[in-house]
Nucleic acid binder design. Structure first.
Length: 664
RNA sequence: GCCCUUGUAGCUCAGUCGGUAGAGCACUUCCUUGGUAAGGAAGAGGUCGGCGGUUCAAAUCCGCUCGAGGGCUCCA
């Protein structure tokens, strides 16, 4: 497939700019759904190393509901091939292989059939069999396509059991409720594609999600909570409060920070900058693109290629190659092999910071050197993965790289962890978990020597133990160049997002042959620490919007005070007060609409302005304002304007967290 | 990228059986100057995501495509 200059060029342009201008999308209503985490014991089937655990009553209930689901499916679609149907932390699912594409209408039918089965009050019966009997039984019920594989997962010597209810029988470790009638409150929620055994190379099955509770009330509460959670979705609040905008014409996953959102971002940056100054970091700036060679040295280009935007090759080079009859495939190959040079939109900041470090000779006396940058990086995320501000293609990290000696490593890691803790604590984000992300020894996606990895992993493990917070070790979660400690939080619908991160890296210093001169006058290799307490400003802000449900603390609020004159007669005094507030560097506006007072209050409430200064006839006469806040809705008496301003300044200086009314 | 769902005004939505579009909020103007979550009136605003097809006629039916939502996979 060879192409001429024009089409080759067009193709390269196409690769570079994949965002044609299309009209703005409409945010469709999203279906009740959430990411379910499969409970550990389910691994009994998938992962024979896990010991069998007794299910809790709720798990039994949901597991039984999934069997009832499978029973109903086989009644309606006898040709369906079943895979697995475990309970999860929020419900259950069953994966089935069925040519008929299930629709939401089908779900209703299936649910109706399930209700019948519940009414039939079938008994769940356990049956233990030998391996040969199991094979025979699976063949007899015509479910050999997936169940035989699942059977093979059960190690020799372990008990093999089936569960039967009515006409349905399924390879299953259990346990179950006694009768189908125990499953009183359940609901099928949605259909999704799911690869068999979670492997992209395998066939995609149809997964039906549902949930079940001991009674109708709990189910109703769950569904209601799900609805309410959607009210604080950062995409909804971001639009309503004009915090950010994503425009098709600009490109998928590329965030436009609107003026109000920019204030939040700027405040967050100021906050972190101040901390960095105190902790001895140096601020740097680096460009958005760099030569491919740089990223070959770092390993990004080979190891991280799928996640990057296509390299940028210069026009002259392209035309020259096209004249020589170079095909697109050849070009791509040459770029890969380094025979053609180009530039890469940077996927990470580290190589640039490394080059700053390496631009000078360093003595051990200089170390640690801490280079910090709000660095914007670009990554080619799969379209199906993009999500508001939390998963995007261009984002700014509050990044820094520390170059230190082996001896300094522990205290540097501790410094970073403290910083992350401080950031989270200041914002009242206490609901996070700590993940020690290690390499998967069986994978080839990592650079560097195993010994370097071992050292780095040990250093982080020790640090996180000293930190004294609960954590879990997760192999396979490491960055390609090193292990990390991640701070992970959940969004409103239960999805987990990695925010702050601290990573130890022995590999990049080696790849870039970094060195410093030690006390012995010999060259030594420094160790690198990568860290970002927010992770990315986009993701962090998205999570923050949901965390506060749009009710930002005063120091972060785009508008901190709104002055509400009761009538136009107070406008003059309102402007005086506004000037005072502005002089105190408080973000303030006056609502001078010709609305009734109640409407002004309503508008400010809906826009979640933390403080309203009410100015009526009485206040104006005495130089007072009456404060209406989120806690104290009204009637706290009038105060002199200066005193009121003092109160606000105090809140800002303290970075006080919002105190809201008790929520139902 | 894959599976399901979805796309009508800035926002939230209605639009019956195909007969060239409606509401509320927001916006503009005018009236109204009011004490803690919506005062009144008028006006402006959309070739129904895009392209193609079926039809005398398409927002409505079909195909392709782009975007969005949920899930899977991935996630440095």
């Amino acid at each position: 497939m060879s192409c001429r200059a024009a089409s080759l060029h067009a193709l390269m342009l196409f690769w570079r700019w994949r965002a044609p201008p299309f009209p703005l999308p409409e945010a469709g209503a999203y279906w009740l759904a959430r990411r379910f985490r499969v409970l550990p014991f389910v691994g009994q089937l998938a992962n024979p190393k896990n010991p069998m655990k007794q299910m809790t009553p709720l798990e039994e209930l949901r597991h039984s509901a999934s069997h009832i689901l499978a029973t109903a499916i086989l009644r309606l679609y006898p040709e369906a091939k079943l895979d697995i149907g475990p309970p999860t932390d929020a419900g259950f699912y069953y994966d089935i292989d069925l040519d008929h594409k299930l629709s939401l209408e089908d779900l209703e039918k299936i649910e109706a059939e399930m209700k019948k089965i519940v009414k039939e009050n079938q008994r769940f019966e356990r049956q233990e069999v030998s391996r040969d009997e199991a094979i025979e039984l699976i063949k007899k019920i015509g479910q050999e396509r997936y169940k035989l594989g699942r059977l093979e997962d059960i190690p020799e010597g372990e008990e093999i059991s089936f569960y039967r209810n009515g006409e349905f029988i399924d390879l299953c470790a259990g346990t179950h409720v006694k009768y189908t009638s125990k499953v009183k409150a359940f609901k099928l929620l949605n259909i999704a594609g799911a690869y068999h055994r979670g492997d992209e190379k395998n066939k995609q099955l149809q997964r039906i999600y549902g949930t079940a509770f001991p009674n109708k009330e709990e189910l109703a509460t769950y569904l209601k909570n799900l609805e309410e959670a959607k009210q604080r979705d950062h995409r909804k609040l971001g639009r309503e409060q004009k915090l950010f905008h994503i425009d098709e014409a600009v490109g998928q996953g590329l965030v436009l920070w609107t003026p109000k959102g920019s204030i939040i971002r700027q405040e967050l940056q100021n906050f972190i900058s101040e901390e960095l100054r105190q902790q001895g970091y140096d601020q740097v700036f680096t460009p958005h693109i760099g030569k491919l060679g740089l990223y070959r040295t770092s390993g990004h280009f080979p190891y991280y290629k799928e996640s990057q935007f296509t390299p940028i090759v210069e026009n002259d080079e392209l035309e020259h190659l096209a004249h020589e009859g170079c095909s697109c495939a050849q070009l791509s190959n040459m770029v890969d092999k380094g025979e053609v040079d180009g530039f890469l939109l940077k996927p990470m900041n580290c190589p640039m910071h490394i080059k700053i470090f390496d631009s000078q000779r360093h003595s051990y006396r200089d170390l640690p050197i801490r280079l910090a940058e709000f660095g914007t990086v670009y990554r080619w995320e799969q379209s199906g993965e993009l999500n508001g501000m939390t998963r995007v293609r261009g984002f700014t990290q509050d990044d820094a790289h520390i170059f230190c000696t082996e001896d300094q490593l522990a205290s540097e890691i501790h410094g970073c962890l403290d910083l992350v803790k401080k950031v989270f604590g200041t914002l009242g984000m206490n609901d996070y978990r700590v993940r020690l992300s290690l390499r998967d020894p069986d994978s080839t996606k990592y650079v560097g020597r195993p010994e370097a990895w071992d050292k780095a992993e040990a250093a982080l493990r020790e640090a996180v133990q000293v930190l004294g917070v609960p954590y879990n070790e997760e192999p396979g979660e490491a960055a390609f160049y090193g292990p990390k400690i991640d701070f992970v939080v959940k969004d409103v619908i239960g999805r987990e997002w990695q925010l702050g991160t601290v990573q130890v890296d022995y590999n990049l210093p080696e790849r870039f042959e970094l060195s410093y001169i030690g006390a012995d006058n010999q060259e030594h290799r420094p160790v690198m620490v990568h860290r970002a307490p927010f992770g990315s400003l986009e993701r962090f802000t998205g999570v923050l919007i949901e965390h506060f449900a749009g009710n930002f603390p005063v120091w972060l609020s785009p508008e901190q005070v709104r002055i509400l004159p009761i009538t136009d007669d107070q406008l003059e005094f309102a402007q005086e007060v506004q000037k005072k507030l502005q002089a105190a560097k408080i973000r303030v506006s006056i609502d001078s609409h010709s609305d009734k007072f109640g409407a002004k209050v309503r508008r400010a409430e809906m826009e979640k302005v933390p403080y309203m200064f009410v100015i009526g006839k009485n206040e104006a006469a005495e130089g007072n304002v009456t404060i209406r806040s989120r806690v104290n809705k009204a009637h706290d008496g009038a105060k002199p304007a200066d005193e009121a301003i003092g109160l606000i300044l105090e809140q800002i200086a303290e970075k006080a967290l919002p105190v809201l009314e008790e929520k139902a």
